[in-house]
């Protein structure tokens, strides 16, 4: 199928009516769009609206995307803009949370993974380490996990941080995740 093609090639094929190419574009990016919407604390119904609006806009602007090689960034920006519009309409405010959550504390905004998703100790450990990170870290790493090649400016825009802050945040979050995975692993080995 189209799985070996680049995003640029897929966009061109999709623009010429290749539905398989469009499905492949969705397959590669729908997690990112969903994650951007959720990172704005939208509920599932609003996040679904944002996702649908983002893909509808892409379908109709397909021929006018100036940097097809930066589709992930375009989707991130569009989903962010639509998320902010919906947020404004819902009269909610985005409250950036810089307060670190101590390891071990559970955060009610982090969904518990479905049991079937956690395949072993390593998954449990990584999930626990991730779930106990500050919310801003989870947003940043959640986006990077799907699109590691987003630029710092693009990630900053998506989560509402300045380029200066995002540089520090990204480094701090990744370092903290590495450290928590390590310390949790060592703790379990010691306990075991």
């Amino acid at each position: 199928m189209s799985t070996h093609l680049s995003v640029v090639e897929l966009l061109e094929l999709a623009g010429n009516g290749d539905r398989g190419a469009w499905r492949e574009l969705v397959e590669r990016h729908h997690r990112l769009v969903w994650k951007v919407a959720l990172s704005h604390r939208l509920n599932d119904a609003d996040a679904a609206d944002v996702s649908q609006a983002t893909w509808l806009i892409l379908a109709e602007k397909l021929g006018t995307i100036r940097r097809p090689d930066r589709l992930a960034a375009w989707l991130t920006t569009t989903a962010r803009r639509e998320s902010l519009r919906v947020l404004a309409m819902r009269r909610r405010e985005v409250q950036p949370s810089w307060d670190d959550v101590e390891p071990g504390e559970s955060d009610p905004t982090v969904p518990a993974p479905e049991d079937s998703a956690v395949r072993g100790d390593r998954d449990r450990l990584l999930w626990t380490a991730f779930a106990t990170l500050p919310e801003q870290c989870r947003k940043v790493l959640g986006l990077l996990a799907y699109e590691p090649d987003l630029t710092l400016v693009e990630i900053g825009r998506a989560v509402g941080l300045s380029p200066a802050s995002i540089t520090k945040t990204r480094t701090r979050c990744l370092t903290t995740l590495h450290r928590r995975v390590l310390s949790l692993g060592i703790g379990r080995e010691a306990a075991g």
């Binding site: 997690r31 994650k35 969904p111 479905e114 079937s116 998954d123």
Partner: peptide, 9 residues
């Protein structure tokens, strides 16, 4: 992490 988030959420 991406793989895990994909499965868990």
């Amino acid at each position: 992490l991406g793989d895990l988030l994909d499965r868990g959420d």
